[in-house]
Design a protein around this nucleic acid. Structure first.
Lengths: 155, 155
DNA sequence: ATTTGACTTCAAGTCGACTTGAACTCCTAG
DNA sequence: CTAGGAGTTCAAGTCGACTTGAAGTCAAAT
């Protein structure tokens, strides 16, 4: 109803606004993330503000790792209209959980990495004359085998 | 020197302990993340505790998205020994930054997703009789074209 | 003595999400 | 009137990181 739906956008403009490339936009349409997009007389795609808004949602879902088939399913449900909210909720909730887990895992990795960064940073300001550094940081040594002759039980 | 380096582990045991599959372990060796692993008389790989520790570092770097070539470079530097700490630092610091950015992005996506989850949750407890729900959540509507005839400037 | 299970190598296949290429159509500007 | 730029389709290619398959070796258990 609002004038906003009357604004006609070319694929290039949508690309500029969403950050998705034009091939990606066509690909998303083909994959059913978007319903078949309107065409003008010349057969070119005509997008609306509503499309852009929806594409931004899709982009967020994708960038947080939701697989295309799952986004397609969600899009289908939304398009179907009222009555399937439980499944939509389920999809989003599951994804939220996964992303939360992902954040947690990354933060754990981050703390390991940060610890190493700190160690190197301290070493570098201390300079090469650092006495506690003879063989590099305790934390981090690619094993090499010069002084080891253990065998695996000959099995 | 410690006894810990004398413990001999089979590829299966290392797999169990690191969570990396045996093909992945061979692949990592081949890719130079690990120096060529010792073999016993039968030609089988013999890993040490030190290998496991290093593999755990690699696994953290990988799971946080560091590409194999970069991990290989880092491994090479560590193996090379003292004198290249500045580059090691650089690699880790850059990666830390990327991961930090990734976390930030995920958290932003998370807030969008969580908002939607909340909307659906509220709708579902309110039940179908919800009056403000005629056409689904404002936030989230796959545009369909039934009532729109805007054209792209015939270009 | 043979079967089992864990290991070996090497090559080839898989996966998802795009990206790229080739060939074509339009419209506008010079 | 032709050159450019943006669009179109369809098919094929790319990427990284593994995974899988085929074929073989070896040592212990039945």
């Amino acid at each position: 109803m609002a004038n906003t739906e009357k604004v006609a956008l070319s694929i290039g403009e949508v690309s500029a606004r969403t950050g998705l490339t034009t091939p990606t936009l066509r690909f998303y349409e083909q994959e059913g993330l978007l319903p078949p997009v309107r065409r003008n007389a010349a057969g070119r795609r005509v997008f609306t503000e509503g499309d852009v808004a929806w594409l931004e949602v899709c982009a967020k879902l994708r960038s947080s790792g939701m697989p295309l088939p799952e986004i397609r399913r969600y899009a289908d449900l939304v398009r179907e209209g009222a009555g399937n909210e439980a499944e939509r909720f389920e999809i989003l909730r599951r994804h939220e959980e996964r992303v939360q887990q992902q954040v947690t895992d990354l933060q754990e990795a981050l703390s390991v990495i940060h610890a190493k960064v700190e160690i190197y940073a301290r070493h570098l300001v201390a300079g090469t004359a650092d006495e506690l550094w003879r063989n590099g940081p305790e934390c981090d040594r690619v094993p090499d085998w010069s002084a080891d002759s253990a065998q695996l039980g000959e099995a």
